[in-house]
Design a protein around this nucleic acid. Structure first.
Lengths: 193, 193, 193, 193
DNA sequence: TATGAATGAGCATTCATTCAT
DNA sequence: TATGAATGAATGCTCATTCAT
């Protein structure tokens, strides 16, 4: 308690402020102040404001990836596995609203170098890609171009989390929860799926 | 008479620079210089950099809304009408890549006041809402919560344009074009749809 | 009425704004706007903002000088003549509060070139000087250094108008009115005065 | 340890430049440059140019108030005490010509918020008020309205310092020095005074 | 590791003034 | 005489970053 890990305090504060005010509207001085450290301290831990941002982006993406990877199941029923994953992903978003908001805001923003953003996306999407190919092979998923499907998948995920973030409580209602997965699954399945 | 229309030059340049460098990384001086006007001229036409941004956002949204409204058909076949609209929307995005990119970047960005963003979104989404209710009534569209469907719709649209913008040429290939609509439609249809 | 003399409108507006906001805080654009003319029009009538200010300063001083000169009497009783003048001067200030305020603010301000200010002061003070010498000669006024007396005179005048401007209504009360002259006169008189 | 006291350098330079060029004609850049610090340093110590000005105004007023309060005597002879004070006040002005000039220029200027100016004036004038009431009680001072007397007092003080500042050397001449007090005293005394 | 005063390039914005109509 | 769009130098202020302690 006497040493509340200043580095972590900086990261937490930066996350909050970047989300609520935007990257450019948040000065390093304000982060330091709100985190209870001196301005110089921020630069001891992160070489620059940009690096702080990148660090945040990468570690949040990693946290998310870890969370859903843990939830991967292999029941032999692809649809059930997909549903399990879909729910786990949205669950994470709802439990980590700040981080999800961060993701929504900065996944497409020029505030983060394209290289970093792509790296983060790929590690998640490639994982989805594997699942899709499995679905193709089983004849459960339609034979659409793979990367189109990935982008669609990502788009639906962002839309769903946006919806449940903006309408807290709806996630508890099975109607809404199940509808979100139904749309996701129907978009890609074949008539067999 | 010569009407060099400096105001339009400023808007065009701002659009290009905001998209390629981001809002904050683009100085008003650089906009003026590239547009061939004096710095003061920018502020003669727009009270502030923020207002210039808002003006851009609102007018581009309007342009888009106008473009798809023109494409509305009523053939008696809802699916065909929806397809027509879907293609028209993506067509517009492909023909106006800069404006579409602008939309992708700033639809969720704190660089634009929430109020302005919501206003822009609503005018488009409410229009989709009407179509969906019609689909519900005809038993063609699944009975999911309306605003969840709207968000999903928007998410798929963003994903599709992202895909076709990043992969120019794919739009010419019927496979991709049709697949994009198929996913969109299947996400929402009933077994009758 | 159809031609409300734009030049005069500019002067009137400038006076009001210079007094209420200060010279530097008043833009030529705001003067023009409030006067109901175009920005260019101001510069047709006055070569520059500074010249407009100088014009204002000189003409107001002239107006004041004219007003008190008109009130000069020669009753053979110097004290009565002085009182008459003192009352006339303060009366003018009370009837022209905007112009008096202008004087208070700019008589010492670097917003107006020293040369202009001195010229304006001298024409009034030299007139006072003549009166004082007369008083000396008659043995009614003390034999203090002349320019010290002039400065004192000016200082008391500014203080008195400040007081009556800040406390409107007091001028109607003989106690206050007479006290103001009494102080003025007693400051300079001899025991015979 | 070397303590270059940059803050003081900024204050000193600002005082000099505000007096010689005026507040608006003095850029923050020029203050910083002449003070030998970076532009940012000025804003590190003062949140804005206006606050720098206010700080200057308030601290100079305080310095003056301190100086004359130190000179207060109570000999039992009110006139002598008043003379002592009058001389001390003018003495301070002559020893601090820059600060006195600053006072003359900005005591009535809209460059400083009315609130700040009044606060500064009151702390000094209320002190004078106490003396005057004592004079009334003793029958030495005329029974004029108190605030009229205060304003008169202030006006004579400004006029006197103006005179001795513009005519350096005269302060050494007893004639002038004594005349300045005589006018001041006679303006307010009764025949007993 | 931590501090915070100091830096100075960079930015949005203002505004007196000009000039083609 | 009147207009108001256009100009661009000048200004107050911000902020990421450095460094002596």
């Amino acid at each position: 308690m006497s040493k509340p890990d200043k580095k972590q305090a900086i990261l937490d504060t930066a996350l909050t402020l970047f989300v609520s005010q935007g990257f450019y509207a948040t000065s390093t001085a304000s982060i330091a102040k709100k985190a209870g450290v001196a301005t110089g301290t921020l630069f001891h831990h992160f070489p620059s404001k940009d690096e702080l941002m990148n660090h945040l982006f990468i570690s949040i993406k990693q946290e998310f990836a870890d969370a859903i990877l843990t939830s991967v199941t292999d029941s032999g029923n692809l649809k059930q596995d997909a549903q399990h994953l879909w729910y786990a992903a949205i669950q994470w978003a709802i439990e980590n609203p700040l981080k999800q908001e961060f993701f929504q805001q900065y996944s497409m923003s020029p505030s983060i170098p394209l290289e970093i953003r792509e790296q983060a996306m790929n590690s998640i999407l490639s994982f989805m890609g594997a699942l899709m190919q499995k679905g193709h092979a089983l004849g459960l998923l339609a034979d659409y171009p793979l990367s189109l499907m990935q982008d669609n998948c990502h788009g639906q995920f962002l839309a769903a989390t946006r919806y449940f973030l903006d309408n807290p409580g709806k996630w508890q209602e099975p109607t809404h929860k199940e509808a979100s997965f139904a749309m996701f699954w129907n978009a890609m399945r074949t008539d067999n799926g």
